[in-house]
Design a protein around this nucleic acid. Sequence first.
DNA 1: AAATTACACAACCGCGGTCTT
DNA 2: TAAGACCGCGGTTGTGTAATT
Length: 306
Amino acid sequence: MGRAPCCDRTKGIKKGPWTPEEDKLLVDYIQANGHGSWRMLPKLAGLNRCGKSCRLRWTNYLRPDIKRGPFSPEEQKSIVQLHAIVGNKWSMIAAQLPGRTDNEIKNYWNTHLKKQLRRMGLADPPPGPAAGCPAARHMAQWETARLEAEARLSLSLASSSGSTAATATATTSASSSASTLFAERAAAAANKPVDIFLRLWSSDTGDAFRRKTAAAAKRNSSKDAAVVIKQEALPPSLFPGPSGGGGGDDSSAASNETGMAEAMDQYQMFLDFAGEELGLYHGRYGGFSLFPPPDVLADALDMAFN
DNA sequence: AAATTACACAACCGCGGTCTT
DNA sequence: TAAGACCGCGGTTGTGTAATT
């Protein structure tokens, strides 16, 4: 034998829009008693509704911590980026946007963002790694948006105290798969904080930046041209492979400091360039740094040099 | 001014995993 | 252990409103 039925379907359970009176009954009851079992709630609260309908009404509309009003540009950007990672996992996206419900985000995506992206030529962008976009540039944009969001997730979680806290944050959505995902990301961020930079550097944007700086170097015979990126100045770990791994042999403390300062400058130049090139992001937003913040980067470079 | 179309969003439906008996 | 309800989620529909013809 299983449980008793959710609600008595033989009685005329009301459907459709909620009246203010019904809302008041529901709010009053939950504030006084908590929702407890949704199945029993309608009866106890004096509502002629299905428990499921009550739960939906409460979680999507009546909950006191719900943020009403239009989505901010930061929220819009977050939705686009998170959607690029997780796809239509609205509850996971909602977990990253305090005060917003999965239903609200889903509606907003379907009515606003999807249309905007179509106009931009990003019709039906695939969740996860970009695939099937009509133009390579758009693929790059989506990939970058995805990387950006990954970085943001990783950093926000890593900055809380380790993967345990990250998991706790993630489990606010009561999704075990989400917590696993975020815990993995947090762990990855702790181990490889500059990974996003490296991946962007390896992308078309990185190529474009290198071409630009090489051209600038040709035009400007001066060796200290500010725009010339010196790959040798960056830690070998950032540039693996035959063409990477510049001078790390004579690593005195002084040269390390100089190299790190140059690396920081060039890192910033590259990010500025990428922001211009991709037109997707411009510096900080939403309380999170787009890429590893300077202190995190400094730590990473420090580790790489020493 | 009326009819039509487009838009926004609340609410419902159905499915799959979890939990209870 | 199995049956079946509960719960949460994503997809879809319905309805009210604004804009356009």
